[in-house]
Write a protein that binds this DNA or RNA. Structure first.
Lengths: 350, 350
DNA sequence: TTGAAAGCGCTAACAC
DNA sequence: GTGTTAGCGCTTTCAA
């Protein structure tokens, strides 16, 4: 058990026959040290398999920069991609990246942010839509101020800042525009009775998509009553269940706009189970263009939200010109990718 | 800029009118402190929004435990699930979990492990098959010894220990058994000419699947020449390309066993592009049962490897009975999930 | 160029 | 019970 101690710089210094200070300087290379001594120190470090103690280093100020991404779950393809983007951009800059999963629980989110404060993270990125209630506003305001008080940055990805004046930065997709565009795509194909499947009242991301959907309907001269949104929330299981129920109740629609691709996956399955075929009997579109959306049956027409780029942008923007960034709001564009899940409405459906 | 300093326990102590030691004791609660003083300290900490400095704490010994998972990429559904399992199990124990992505580059893997040593991770989990060459053996032996020297644990998930005596623990699925079972499933359906798509010679995970495939063939009395493995490696793109080429060359097979579900996704697409339908013209099976495998066209028959459980098991086993665990080898079971991508071989295919 | 020494924020002995 | 003190391993003045 004597051996369970890490090799310290003191041992390296002794072996190299120099002082700790010199060893430190040789190792970090930020201070001139004669090549010969330097080599001796490096050699000793290698022989001993020395690794610096990051905590000691952090304590004295020269610590490694750390970024944290917080998502609901890493197994969601969309969140995974965002996390990968953050990870990649952080790695490019030599930063360490920690990812935390909350399962959607505000409590766990708070604990994780707290933890990151303790660990001295310089950048905390919260990802994903939320219901924007008072509790949310209070929580985020607190995060922002606490983080800012120590010079750390907070970025909100796909969720709103409670107040434009708090020291946080938001980066998100233009959900309303994306939803408007894909609804327009359905409308252009001739559909008039389109249901939006996957509403989540209060959730900022979904509300924006619903708004875009309504706007597109209105632009095409449809009355407000033409909108039909089913608030089943997100996830494959929710989409499957809601779609199945809807098909039992009514067939008074020819297309479905799913809140995201996972909902679309569930809807597709429910439609097939009902003996209908897509797109002949029913058209379906999704949102996010996750990898594998093209492997659905049929390949899914959806709106592409470059998730990895969202992650990269979050760190890039936060780290560039920090003073100016605070309070700023960045909107990333999206576009439709057309595959095979949209067709003309079936004959006689009007 | 004066404000960019964190509040320390000294300030909390001053505000509560006690010494730092008392404040520390009240905060961590591991030492009896009168309720009244304790309350004053807690109050002061809350007023100041104090968070302990994890680095200082770690330095003095009482640091937070940290686990690290290292995967190729978080966007792979399989790896994401493993990471989620590790994260969940770590969180359950109050540990922090860091995930690192290497992109399959040994160099980045080494850097990341080094980093984790600096950060004082107590548990490092390396996930995914590898080609087991001398460089690999040397690398892993070094990780194991270095980690062990400080009492940290190394677990290898789905990759071999270079030597049973090194202080590392391996947890993996029984790839050979899984492959044998699903090949048997194809055989039972009447297929005799089955190609294995996605070999990666030297990769331990794939080699085991190929071995299981060959074993099943042999068990059914087929000659060794009946085996046909295409070494195209993993990933959807590889599967797509290899399958397309194969179909151009020959149709002398009625089923394909894809190295994993992503390869299967590519293969399915290539088969459809060639005007064939699954399973009428061709049967396809995959490996891993990723979420969404049931949304493929058609829903994929595959072998389920409980990935999240693999991640959880890795930390559970590593943390339980540590002395005994080192050097042990754990095999997790898998099973087939039957969906709709397997049928009888087409008429006259014999 | 190098060494001695101070100190980062915290906890754990060790007094009182 | 509570305060004082001594470090944890490192970097960085400050002298020499």
């Amino acid at each position: 058990m004597e051996s369970k101690r890490r090799v310290t710089i003191r041992e390296v210094a002794e072996r190299a026959g120099v002082s700790m200070a010199t060893a430190s300087r040789a190792l970090s290379g930020n201070h001139p040290v004669p090549a010969a001594t330097r080599a001796r120190v490096l050699r000793a470090a290698r022989d001993l398999d020395y690794v610096a103690n990051a905590h000691a280093r952090a304590l004295v100020g020269g610590g490694r920069k750390m970024a944290a991404v917080v998502v609901r779950q890493v197994t969601s393809p969309f969140y995974a991609q965002v996390a990968e983007g953050v990870e990649a951009e952080a790695a490019d800059r030599g930063w360490l990246c920690v990812v935390g999963a909350t399962g959607g629980d505000p409590q766990r989110e708070m604990e994780f942010v707290q933890l990151m404060r303790e660990e001295g993270a310089r950048l905390v990125i919260l990802v994903g839509g939320v219901v924007e209630d008072d509790a949310y506003r209070e929580r985020v305001t607190h995060y922002a101020q606490a983080l800012d008080a120590t010079g750390a940055r907070l970025v909100l990805c796909g969720r709103p800042a409670p107040d434009p004046d708090i020291p946080a930065l938001v980066v998100e997709f233009d959900n309303e525009a994306g939803a408007r565009a894909i609804t327009g795509h359905l409308l252009s194909a001739g559909h008039r009775r389109i249901v939006f499947l996957g509403g989540l009242p209060g959730n900022t991301a979904l509300d924006a998509r619903v708004a875009g959907y309504r706007a597109a309907l209105a632009e095409h001269g449809l009355p407000a009553e033409a909108a039909h949104v089913v608030d089943c929330g997100l996830g494959r299981a929710a989409g499957l269940r809601a779609m199945a129920e809807l098909l039992k109740e009514t067939r008074e629609f020819t297309a479905v706009f799913a809140g995201d691709d996972m909902v679309a996956a569930g809807a597709l399955r429910a439609i097939a189970d009902a003996g209908l075929t897509v797109p002949d009997d029913m058209s379906v579109v999704g949102y996010n263009d996750i990898p594998l959306a093209e492997d659905f049956n049929p390949p899914l027409t959806t709106v592409r939200t470059p998730a990895e780029e969202l992650g990269r942008a979050a760190v890039r923007i936060a780290l560039r010109d920090p003073e100016h960034a605070a309070g700023s709001h960045h909107l990333l564009g999206t576009h439709i990718v057309v595959r095979r899940s949209v067709g003309a409405p079936p004959e006689g459906s009007h």
